[in-house]
Computed example of a mutant assay.
Amino acid sequence: MPDRLPLFPLGSVLFPGLTMPLHVFEERYRRLMSELLGPAEDAGEAQQFGVVGIELGHEVGASAAHQLSDVGCMAEVRSVRRHDDGRYDLVIEGRSRFRVEEVDDPDDDRPYLRAATTLIPDELGAGAEEQAERASRLFRVYCERLTGIGIPTEPPAEFPADPLPLSYAVASALVLDQRDKQALLEADHAAARLELASALMRRENRVLTALPTLPAGPLLRREVNLN
């Protein structure tokens, strides 16, 4: 990891092993992408930066004061389309989690944020297998509840069975607010993440059971994140 990791603040949470589309249009983040991709864009080299949640402030606007989450996720560019006007459409994939230690102020040379960071190791935790079985069952019920209110949903055919990737896949798939998503990202290990996800799914399953049937589609529409 670089001594100073470029940061991309978002009002969304990226999880290791999962992908996210980004539309980059703000000048400082165009600058970041230009420096990251540069001549290596067509060379297949891994180009990484840090995605970190915004707890207070806005994604767009040079004057926005960001209060950032303490934990973020390394992002690797998987595909990129550069527009003639300098905008970028990206698909990124989450890699390792990191903890933000110290954030540098932007300056004229680097108008985007950078930070000193520490990688967070991924661990299974005690009881991970049992938690994985429980979370898998609850996720199937969650999908059934969504289908029951008019949003046809099935667990992905290739949903992981191993506790660690499953913990991130479930966390990413659930329709939750950013605070809940961030708590899932920050969980100490896979067992704790699966236990929290199960508690959240029990809550959501109760809510979904009480909802009337909705027009199909709105909750699970994949939104493109704007910088």
Rank of each mutant, 00 (worst) to 15 (best):
M1E: 09
R4G: 08
L5Y: 07
L7E: 10
S12G: 09
P21M: 15
E26R: 06
E45P: 09
Q48L: 03
F49E: 01
G50W: 03
A65I: 11
D70L: 05
R78H: 13
S79N: 13
V80G: 03
V80P: 10
R82K: 13
G86Q: 06
D89A: 14
L90F: 00
V91Q: 11
G94D: 02
R95L: 15
V100F: 05
E101W: 10
E101Q: 10
P106S: 05
D107R: 02
Y112P: 08
R114E: 04
T118W: 04
L119C: 10
D122A: 12
D122V: 00
G125I: 03
G127Q: 12
E129D: 14
Q131R: 06
R134C: 07
A135D: 10
S136Y: 06
V141S: 11
C143V: 13
L146N: 03
T147R: 04
G150N: 09
T153M: 15
E158R: 09
S167G: 03
S172A: 15
D177M: 08
D188I: 06
L196R: 02
S198V: 01
A199S: 08
N205F: 04
T209Q: 08
P212H: 01
G217V: 10
R222Q: 12
R222C: 09
V224N: 12
L226Q: 11
L226D: 00
